[in-house]
Design a protein around this nucleic acid. Structure first.
Length: 185
DNA sequence: CTCAGGATGATCT
DNA sequence: GATCATCCTGAGG
């Protein structure tokens, strides 16, 4: 796992991150759900070019892009090639379950890290981590030993570019924020 | 300076 | 499915 991995199309990285183990201060688990956002993407914060808020998306790859959502929650992304990033939407908790349960005020492992806001709360991710390299402490990222079976579908919570199937998940995972059904026919 | 609008989540119907 | 809590930022006057 090195910076090269992230110097690619965010859509490819989003798919390849599934099954990887993400920890923050030794708390976290296996990535089961991601979404890709690119600069040529109407739904992306980077679409209108660099600003103070999205500066991290235009910085070095393999760094965190953390923003506040709806005034209440944080969302955690990993920056890929310039102007693009992968939103981490769900983990299967494996490390520090007790800490997560305490931070979240519940114990159900299927809900602890389901959704970007919940995930950040469980892992203690805040705006302070915006721009930090995710290949060094307090972060830890290790790719999957074996590639899991994945599915893709439309992204969640956006109003533009809704037709792009840039949400990725491990097939059949019970840890998703919402079920993902492969495109219909 | 004002102000609308979110890459959400919990709760209620 | 609808509502709402609550905070910036970026856009426009």
């Amino acid at each position: 796992m090195d910076e090269e991995f992230f110097m690619r199309d965010a859509v490819a990285v989003a798919a390849d991150l599934l099954g990887a183990r993400l920890l923050v201060h030794d708390v976290g688990g296996v990535i089961v759900e991601t979404e890709a956002y690119r600069q040529d993407d109407e739904a992306s914060h980077s679409h209108r070019g660099p600003t103070r808020a999205n500066a991290a998306m235009f910085g070095a790859p393999a760094r965190a892009y953390v923003y506040r959502s709806y005034g209440l929650h944080f969302c955690f992304n990993i920056v890929c090639e310039t102007g693009s990033a992968v939103l981490i939407r769900g983990l299967q908790p494996t490390h520090g379950l007790e800490t997560m349960a305490q931070r979240r005020g519940l114990a159900d492992p299927r809900r602890l890290c389901a959704g970007p806001g919940n995930l950040c709360k469980a892992l203690g991710v805040t705006k302070l981590m915006d721009g930090m390299p995710i290949l060094s402490p307090p972060f830890s990222l290790a790719l999957a030993a074996e590639k899991p079976a994945i599915v893709s579908g439309p992204r969640i919570g956006i109003s533009k570019a809704v037709d792009l199937a840039w949400r990725f998940a491990i097939e059949g995972s019970p840890y998703l924020s919402k079920p993902l059904r492969p495109a219909e026919r």
